[in-house]
Amino acid sequence: MNRNMKVLIVDDFSTMRRIIKNLLRDLGFTNTFEADDGNTALPMLKEGDFEFVVTDWNMPIMQGIDLLKEIRKDPKLKNLPVLMVTAEAKREQIIEAAQAGVNGYIVKPFTAGTLKEKLDKVFERLG
């Protein structure tokens, strides 16, 4: 796993972006960028060479699930791994995210250990 990969963190709460950014830094990912909703994230993804996205679900304007669907629709982005970190905990939501092609799903509140475990799993599966 290339720990210098460009990572985009998408969450409308800056505190949560900071938490995830810090945890990722602890895990060796220092090349992180932030966006506050899907609508700001999508153009960044289209322009930049991001290799990984961590996104919330419930955000204004464009929600995380819609961002995920847009990513999968875009021929250039469709293989981009997406990890969802969200308070949304309904079964149907998790199933919807899985069907939309999410690579991992973490419910808030979560621990640093969970983030590491899911990250390892995502990249292990991608090979």
């Binding site: 679900w57 419930n58 929600q63 699930i65 308070a87 949304e88 905990a89 309904k90 079964r91 149907e92 939501q93 998790i94 919807e96 973490i106 419910v107 808030k108 979560f110 969970t114």
Partner: peptide, 21 residues
């Protein structure tokens, strides 16, 4: 289609939500 609901306050009493990771 599926509305975002935010954090669940009574996850133990509901069967349509997951209870933890």
């Amino acid at each position: 289609d599926i509305e975002a609901e935010g954090p669940i306050i009574n996850a133990e009493e509901r069967d349509d939500v997951v209870n933890g990771q």
